[in-house]
Amino acid sequence: MTARVLVIGEIRDGHLLASSLEAVGAARACAGPSDRLEGLLVGPAAAAASPAFAAAGLASVACVADAALERPTPWAWSRAIVAAATAAGAELVILAGTAAGRDVAGRVAARWEAAAVTGVTAIGRAPGGRLRLSRPVFGGRATQEVEVAAPRAVLAVRPHAFPAPAPTASAAPATELPGGTGPEGDGRILGFEHVEGGAGPDLGDAAVVVSGGRGVRAADNFSLIEELARSLGAAVGASRAVTDAGWRPVSYQVGQTGKSVTPQLYVAVGISGAIQHLVGMVSSRVIVAINSDAQAPIFRVADYGIVGDLFAIVPALTREVRRVRGIA
């Protein structure tokens, strides 16, 4: 039996997001050989972005070239998605779990009368054929397995969890779907205006986090941590010692009483690794610890450790990262 999967691509500033290609990777991970994978792109850049999207392994890409969908509202986007899913006769809609993707998933599920699972990191089938999904819960402190008990499902996959497929030479057709599903639907959305934050990624969503602890010794020295984070494009975190001392605001705190993070790479600088901190970051994929005390508990949860003076190591590491990443 052929199942149909609709993968939703997300376009920002005219470019298809890498996480949308990962969504295709996720679709391919659960699709059988006879299943048909289709894509949906909306907005004025849809047609231009469709070849790259299709090259990830889609049989066709539907485009809704409605200018009003350049930065679609959840309301408008959900209508476009459900219309496309219905047109394609899909059983499964997969989208990237970006801020916008997570925002729209619930709407699509309710409108399409489908099940919905977000934060998906692995996709499989249970013995009875039901979709079975893994997803981190409790800030990454545990993993939940969920089975879908409905004929249709919407999945939002966690960024970085699935590899983006290598591009293939694709002759997948780009089909045009009609617009008219935009915000004029009831005219309640009045407009957008982009205000670039520029302060680095959000601690909770970042792929890389660099955190400083008591070993940083003073508020002023925290700039060392921030420079390393900037070189890596990372979010900045801190241990409770730092926020208790008032070196950085509480919003930086990673740990039991702060935020839980699960980045691909977590760099702990001058953090001894109190349990209260560990529970907030131990589920990171790769952990690097830099500490002067070889006995510090952080080294037991870390993958790579450097014992040494952070005031010497961190600037050297920042220079090396900048060199390798070609940052002036």
Binding site: G273, Q276, Q295, P297, R300
Partner: peptide, 8 residues
Amino acid sequence: GEYALQRH
């Protein structure tokens, strides 16, 4: 208690 679990 917290320290005793952490310190090796």
